[in-house]
Amino acid sequence: MFYWFLKWIALGPFLRAVFRPRVTGADHVPLEGPAILASNHLSYADWLFMPLTLSRRVTFVAKAEYFTGTGIKGWLQKTFFSGSGQVPIDRSGADAAAGAMLSAKRVLAEGGLFGIYPEGTRSHDGRLYRGKTGVARLALETGVPVIPCAVVGTDVVAPPGKKFGAFTRPVVLFGEPLDFSRYEGLANDRYILRSVTDEIMYEIMRLSGQEYVDMYATRAKEEAKRAEAEAAIEAAHEQRKAS
């Protein structure tokens, strides 16, 4: 009930009135039954605006720590995350990735919509990065369709490293469902997993218009930080020489 309270009474009307998000292709999302919504990831605001454009609940996985806090703060945190469409990663898996897969399968088995960011983390520079194959494995093991999704403009509303940037109208675009039933039984073939993931990422790129980089976002962030550090050292060195 808290999810619908946030969506239709407490938070949703405010976001709709202030930001007036636009949506294209919402009819590609089934009115019932399981589906995977695979989206780009530009901002922490993505998980607010994408579900806002649909009448159905969209569930994402979140760190289990968000649901195990104690005291008033822990209760508030647990209530917010569970109520806003998040479920904890199932720690009965061997690791976080396996735990996320178990949680996702549970959502889909119950006929829900499961949201996933194949890049694994937010883009630090607005480009679209290589997808991790977990989305492909989930699709092949469950047999449910994958609906590519692109959220545009959220990096203006809430840029990386900031809580708020500027006002703009976010746009949410849904593509046609992708059916990978032709690969049934091949969920352990890493070449098939990569092929399926790349197909999903291509559709996300086509919807979002982002520049694609064939590199994992985590590695790109590390290289960007390293380059910034080297530039700062070089600038300090030049300043010492000039003085």
Rank of each mutant, 00 (worst) to 15 (best):
G25V: 04
T70E: 15
A62F: 06
V213A: 10
A150F: 07
L52F: 05
E184I: 01
E203V: 00
A104F: 01
V196M: 08
A139L: 07
L54S: 07
A62E: 07
V58P: 02
L31C: 05
R240T: 04
T68S: 15
I147V: 15
F81A: 08
V146L: 13
V152N: 15
V107W: 13
L52M: 08
M50A: 13
A187H: 07
R182E: 14
K105G: 02
F180M: 04
R56C: 14
R22N: 06
A26W: 13
S92F: 04
T24N: 09
G111H: 08
E65G: 02
C149K: 03
S39G: 09
I9Q: 00
E141N: 05
N40F: 08
Q210F: 11
G25E: 08
S208H: 02
V146I: 12
A98K: 06
I72Y: 12
G33W: 13
G134I: 02
W8Q: 06
I116M: 03
A98C: 06
I116T: 00
E32R: 09
T68E: 15
F174H: 05
I89D: 06
Y202P: 00
R137Q: 14
P118S: 07
M201F: 06
D46S: 09
G85Y: 14
K78C: 07
P88D: 09
R127Y: 09
R56L: 12
L31W: 08
A64F: 13
D179G: 12
T68H: 12
S123R: 01
N40Q: 08
A242Q: 05
R169K: 14
L113Y: 10
T142C: 10
P51N: 11
Y44A: 11
L31G: 15
L42P: 00
E65C: 04
I147G: 00
A224P: 00
G83A: 12
S92G: 01
F164W: 15
R206N: 07
A217T: 08
